[in-house]
Amino acid sequence: MMQLHKFNDTTALNADFSDRLVTILQQAITQRGAAYLVVSGGKTPQALFTALSQVNLAWDKVTVLLADDRWLDDSQTDSNERLVKATLLQNKASAARFISLYANTPSAFTGAAEVLPRISALPTFDAVILGMGEDGHTASLFPCSAQITAGLAEGAPAVLAVEPTTAPYQRMSLSLPRLLDSRHIFLHLVGSNKLAVLNKAMAEQDVLAMPIRAFLQHPLAQVTVMYSDT
């Protein structure tokens, strides 16, 4: 199921989104002594990350990880880990714990066994922030990849290596069931082109063609879409 929230601009979106996330994380810390936040890379969330980094919160009780990452170490420009460390894990949020999806192996496929225990051992997430590509991929669950069926399977492992054919780099991605194991799921979108993709995703049901449908049309999951045109 999907609930769409539209904002006039990204400033309004990020202010509201930050407040929602802080409330969720604070509630988790109060109730369970720890909070788990899953984020996505790319340009869209950077301003949100910067705003979050300056919020008063018991960040030392927050664990942050990525929904996916390119198989690059964090010295590489295209690493999502590098992005998160440079934007979110700054200021007050520098006290948060970060779990990497990278291991020092030649490929994501050889590194998956090392990354898997880090993620499979985690409890239910408190919030997952997804992005969406114009092909309908989310995390690194790419419709073009040979691994898409495995990543969307009900019994999929927590993480899997992915090699998209329409995007560079091998990837490490959380699977559909691991991402769905969250108290709150958000989809963060900016731009009218993304709204058109969202509408297309809701109009049909083939999840292999547009993997974001597996979240938006899931019978039990509630996905909150945070959207602005600009």
Rank of each mutant, 00 (worst) to 15 (best):
A156Y: 09
A67M: 14
S145F: 11
D68E: 06
I119N: 06
L176W: 10
V128Q: 02
E163M: 13
I129F: 07
L25I: 11
I148M: 09
R178W: 13
L195H: 11
L21E: 04
N80M: 09
S182F: 08
A86N: 15
R82A: 15
D69L: 06
R20K: 14
E204C: 05
L83W: 03
F49T: 01
D229I: 05
L52M: 08
E81A: 13
M172L: 11
P164M: 03
E163V: 10
V225R: 00
E154G: 12
A209N: 09
W59H: 00
A196I: 12
T63Y: 10
G42H: 06
V115K: 02
R171G: 06
V225S: 01
S175N: 05
F125S: 12
D74Y: 06
K61W: 05
V62H: 05
T110M: 12
T77H: 12
F125C: 10
Q54C: 10
T110C: 07
Q27N: 14
R213Y: 07
A167Y: 09
D69P: 06
V128T: 13
M2T: 15
I29D: 07
L130A: 04
A161P: 08
M172Y: 10
P123S: 03
N199H: 15
A93L: 12
S182T: 07
K92G: 03
A67T: 15
A161V: 03
R171Y: 09
L83F: 05
I119C: 08
L220M: 12
W59S: 02
L187K: 00
A201L: 07
N56G: 12
F215W: 07
Q54E: 15
A156E: 05
S175A: 09
T105Y: 10
L198Q: 04
R82N: 13
D78A: 15
M1Y: 09
F186Q: 01
K85W: 09
R20C: 13
L52F: 10
F215A: 00
N14Y: 12
V223G: 03
E134D: 15
L72M: 10
L141H: 00
A95W: 07
A108N: 06
F186N: 04
S107L: 06
L220S: 14
G111S: 05
S100M: 08
G41P: 08
G133Q: 04
E163L: 14
K200N: 14
V84T: 11
H184K: 12
K194D: 08
N91I: 03
Q90D: 07
D206A: 03
L116P: 02
L160Q: 11
A113I: 07
L176P: 00
D19W: 00
A103E: 14
P219Q: 04
D9K: 02
M226F: 12
M1K: 11
T165Q: 14
V62L: 03
D74Q: 11
D73F: 06
T77A: 15
V22Q: 08
A209M: 10
A96N: 03
G33R: 01
V207M: 09
Y227C: 04
L65W: 15
D16I: 00
S40Q: 01
S175E: 06
A156K: 04
F109G: 02
S228D: 14
V55S: 12
A127S: 13
A214C: 08
A167H: 11
L101E: 07
E163W: 00
